[in-house]
Design a protein around this nucleic acid. Structure first.
Lengths: 202, 202
DNA sequence: CCGATACGCAACGGTTCCGTTTCGTAAATA
DNA sequence: TATTTACGAAACGGAACCGTTGCGTATCGG
């Protein structure tokens, strides 16, 4: 018995190509990142971009939505390391990460889809929210709750309101703020002006 | 000469039907309001919904984008009457109007389009921003500037930051806040928590 | 080597929408 | 009445994409 026994017996025949699978997912994310909407995204375009036959796609996913679900699931969520020294610093880190992601076209367009097509593709969004939104939301919630506990933030603060203030303000700036201007100090300015409202006042 | 002479001579033949024109625009807004994206919106669907032949549409608009531009232009912008008694009251009125519009499916979906398809349809968005966004933005800017002048708001406040705080927080709540819950007091709560930050402190 | 499965490719019939044309009819002017 | 233009309806050829199938080749286990 020199051959190791896999836990699940490999089925006979040529195994599926991992390379093709990755190329399909990459092509899907690329096209979405280039501004293509979910409804405009065609299997044929994905196959062409990935250098793959349509058969290879249909063998793995029965429809477009399933494919996009899996593609979105591969978007890693590398939350920033939080120093934990102060609530202010941690919030600046979180907003900075948010702004940086909003700058990447791929994340940016996926975010657009999340905001506009949530009603039409509920399964898609459920998965995306679970994978991408919730971790960030909970990270910010944890920071705010820690700040309330430590006395850095107003003990009467509604946590959801605090998150809306920070995230909403940041989102607004990246969407409709002064164009082109990247303003590396923006996260700090947002946190400071919001903190002045929600920070505990002695 | 019993017949009045119009300023512009009416061309011979049957005049175009205003009723058909309105039906086309209404059908367009209806379909957009039902969640249909710009790219999925087809001339044939509009014609069918409006009870009109495709010919009647193509006679007026050479392409889909032109039609949507005109349709969006008919969306009136009835800004709320501002009492002008206090900055706080006026801001609550503005945010209340924003939330009310976000509740109407037609305005809601048009807003979705504005946020997600701005890159793909720049002409569309330019017109929409000019027609719908700018008046509201300027109304809020005026209130904030009046508040700064009157001493109700922090004299060092960045007006754009103030608008981002108010509008962004409101947007965030309507998008990802607790579902279903309408919370009629939300505009007031948002204004109060933001004011606590941007209001001048004696 | 053999059987099995995956591969890329091309073609299929079917659907939807495109923008145009034709048709018979309706509504205006002259 | 004659002319002119608009109307709704239907059909056109063309394009894109659907999901499927067949083809010849490649890659695995036995």
């Amino acid at each position: 018995m020199t051959i190791q026994e896999p836990a699940v017996a490999r089925p006979a025949g040529r195994p599926r190509s991992e390379k093709a699978e990755k190329a399909i997912i990459e092509a899907t994310l690329d096209l979405l990142g280039e501004g293509m909407g979910v409804s405009e995204l065609s299997i044929e375009a994905i196959a062409s971009r990935a250098g793959v036959g349509k058969t290879t796609i249909y063998r793995r996913w029965s429809n477009k939505e399933d494919l996009i679900v899996d593609a979105l699931a591969t978007l890693k969520a590398p939350l920033p390391e939080l120093g934990g020294t102060s609530v202010r610093d941690d919030l600046i880190s979180l907003l900075g990460a948010m702004r940086a992601e909003a700058g990447q076209p791929r994340s940016r367009c996926v975010m657009n889809i999340a905001m506009s097509e949530a009603d039409r593709y509920p399964r898609l969004m459920e998965r995306f929210v679970e994978r991408a939104i919730t971790p960030r939301r909970e990270a910010m919630r944890a920071v705010i709750e820690r700040g309330i506990a430590s006395g850095e933030l107003d003990p009467g603060l509604d946590v959801d309101m605090g998150m809306a203030l920070l995230s909403g303000t940041m989102l607004w700036h990246t969407k409709w703020g002064p164009e082109g201007e990247l303003d590396p100090g923006l996260p700090e300015r947002v946190v400071d002006v919001v903190m002045a409202g929600i920070a505990a006042r002695p």
